[in-house]
Design a protein around this nucleic acid. Structure first.
Lengths: 202, 202
DNA sequence: CGTTAATGCGAATATCTATTCGCGTTCAAT
DNA sequence: ATTGAACGCGAATAGATATTCGCATTAACG
């Protein structure tokens, strides 16, 4: 941020600008999210935008940071540890993922679609990190039932599989019901995570 | 295509332009693939480009079509039907996927990264279609061993999971070995596809 | 109040890129 | 060889968008 807003008026403007950015992206798509539009939407001028954000991407990063916190909060609020059944735990996580992705009127969708030219990495990596910690805790607690060794790899595969399958599903006309998709994804993921490590049965 | 090239010289130019497009994308990335650069690379002028391609995207579509044929050809050449072991069959498919994705010096990677603003749909859908047909044949032949009902959903999930997990893997610094990834992906996918339909065991 | 620093403005500027168009060149058929 | 059509050229045009800068307005504080 180029300058720290010191007065109340300007702090509100910074806030309004980030809000406006989100609104523009979800309404017009990332490509048509111009500095002019953002400023107009926020009810300020382009010049003011550059008072507090070095450039356009700084503004978008500010938005991403806020969203990342939102997601982290929601994830922490899920009491997944208490769910003993792996299948159930996975299913809840997937449903949470769907709800995030569908929230905010397609904002997340547009962001994930453009993930390669945005600091979406932050969010995806964050999600993955959270799932990783969560998984570590979960499988530590339930080690007796599910003794996994290569958790890193498995969580990597699983989060990407779920995330992008959901993205593809939602960003296409859904020829497949969301119910069915969530159910089947759960089956695949839970089945995979439950598989014991490499040991040939006699 | 705006006009049909009638003379040998112009047919070669069209070919050179498509080649140049591929080269630009793989060398400089999609964002820096300008008409000027393409023309320069092809050794012709911008104006000539517009003789045969209505606009820039028409040129890219021509490239995509050619690539799609390449992939389809390679896929058809794989003798997967003969592979009786599901695990083996899946593994070979995944390795094929990796090889395609890594081929042509990152061209495919750049395209898949930008899939939302390209007719990549064509390719992804094509791949998915091919896998679908292939799966239909495969599971028809091996119905005794793997009686699957909801093949559509399963193949949708599986293709997207594999494709985008691979993309994420290759487009990041690979913290995970490709070997391990291929092995684990295979385990997940084959395990899932082998699961019997919904019937509670006694 | 009055002064000053912070804030806000938006037309003007800089840059980048797709696309066009008028003119010169080459091809192919007679 | 001649001629008309196809071809090829690239400077000029058009359109879009990020970023700046000099001036106007507002808040803070004595």
């Amino acid at each position: 941020m180029r300058k720290q807003p010191q007065q109340k008026r300007s702090r509100e403007m910074v806030r309004a600008l980030v809000d406006a950015t989100a609104l523009c992206i979800q309404r017009h798509g990332l490509d048509d999210t111009t500095t002019a539009r953002i400023a107009e939407q926020a009810g300020v001028s382009v010049g003011s935008l550059y008072q507090y954000f070095g450039d356009k991407s700084a503004l978008i990063e500010a938005l991403m940071d806020r969203l990342a916190e939102d997601i982290a909060g929601g994830l922490r609020r899920l009491p997944l540890m208490a769910v003993n059944d792996l299948n159930e735990m996975v299913h809840r996580s997937i449903l949470f993922g769907f709800s995030v992705l569908r929230s905010r009127d397609g904002l997340y969708l547009e962001l994930v679609r453009n993930w390669h030219r945005l600091p979406t990495h932050r969010m995806v990596d964050l999600l993955q990190q959270h799932f990783m910690e969560l998984s570590r805790l979960y499988f530590l607690r339930h080690y007796r039932d599910y003794p996994i060794e290569n958790l890193e790899v498995r969580v990597f595969i699983v989060t990407n599989s779920v995330l992008f399958t959901m993205v593809r599903h939602v960003s296409q006309g859904d020829l497949i019901g969301e119910q069915a998709l969530a159910r089947e994804l759960t089956r695949m993921v839970a089945g995979y995570l439950a598989e014991p490590p490499e040991t040939a049965a006699p």
